[in-house]
Computed example of a mutant assay.
Amino acid sequence: MMDTTEVDTQMGFESEEDDSDMSDEELQEAFAKGLLKPGLNIPVEEAKKFTNNVEGMKQCLSDFCKSLPWAERLDLSNMPAADIVAQAEGRQLAAESGAINAEDDFQREMFFYRQAQATVLEALPKLRKLNIPTRRPEDYFAEMSKTDQHMQKIRKKLLIKQTAMEKSEKAKKLRELRKYGKKVQVEVLQKRQKEKKAMMSAVKKYQKGMTDKLDFLEGDQDKNQKGAGPPKAQTNKKGPNAKRKFKDRKFGFGGKKKGTKWNTKESHNDMSGFRAKMAHGKGGKGGKSFGKGGKKGNKRPGKETRRKMKNKK
């Protein structure tokens, strides 16, 4: 089989790099000489042959099993273990009757479970006979499949996720509280607007003479009294406490120290010390008015007199 470059050189043709094409006649002559072969220009793929050599596979398996001891293979083929509870109740198992439905998940999983039980019951005596331990010792140390760095990364991601969930829950609660607060605020504003509207309508009716009741004013007074707390009479009704009373009995009551110059109802109504002349400037020394037999008070000189006196100086 010759190379394409040799064919091109023998036939006197240029390569594909020179952008030259062969004519049909030249191709026919080359094919007649045997220079062109199938697959030279178009690749031909051969069909794959699949061989299912069952006997050969079984022979390989038997040879492999013979070469290795059972402790290295640990292969067992068992039927499911007997169900003692079903036998005691007199029920027939589906595995024994051969009526196992592969589509039934419960029957299929129970079949695998009983088969694993039978395998364990058969394998444990063999392992003990070969002196192979079947239990992990107390001081057993095994290499972890995940490194400490990887577990730290996982722990960090879990903490971040937990923190994000806590923040989300907190934000959700705050949003709910805000919604509730806005709802209460809207209700309060609506209530105030309603009361204000009722008040204005009552005032307009009173101004127009449609009614002579002043109930709306009494409502305001009741509100003020509720907001201000109990009246003073009730607060002062209790009097001093037990400690103050004990000290008064022991040391005596020295009298009131503050508020001695405050006016009271009795002092306000007491007119015994009132003097009209003293009150209106008609008597006493230095009075400014002229009374009967009174002296002339000091009178300020006029503006012109004061000017002349100033010039004389």
Rank of each mutant, 00 (worst) to 15 (best):
P38W: 03
D63M: 12
F31E: 05
E45K: 06
K37P: 00
A47E: 15
I42P: 01
V44E: 04
P38Q: 14
F50G: 03
F64K: 12
P43Y: 13
A47W: 07
N53M: 01
K58A: 05
A32C: 05
K37W: 06
L36G: 00
Q59Y: 04
C60L: 15
S62R: 13
G34I: 10
P43A: 12
A32E: 15
K33D: 12
L36H: 00
F50R: 08
K37C: 05
K48M: 05
M57S: 08
I42S: 11
P43D: 12
I42R: 14
E55C: 01
K58F: 08
D63A: 11
V54K: 09
G56T: 08
Q59F: 05
L36V: 14
F64Y: 14
P43K: 15
N52S: 05
C60E: 14
K49L: 08
G56N: 06
L61W: 09
I42Y: 11
G56V: 11
P38R: 08
F64R: 12
T51N: 08
K48G: 02
V54D: 07
K37N: 08
F31N: 05
D63G: 15
N53G: 06
L36Y: 09
T51C: 07
F64P: 01
D63R: 13
V44F: 04
K48H: 03
M57V: 13
L61G: 05
T51K: 09
L35D: 13
E55V: 01
K37E: 10
Q59H: 04
V54L: 15
N41W: 08
G39Y: 03
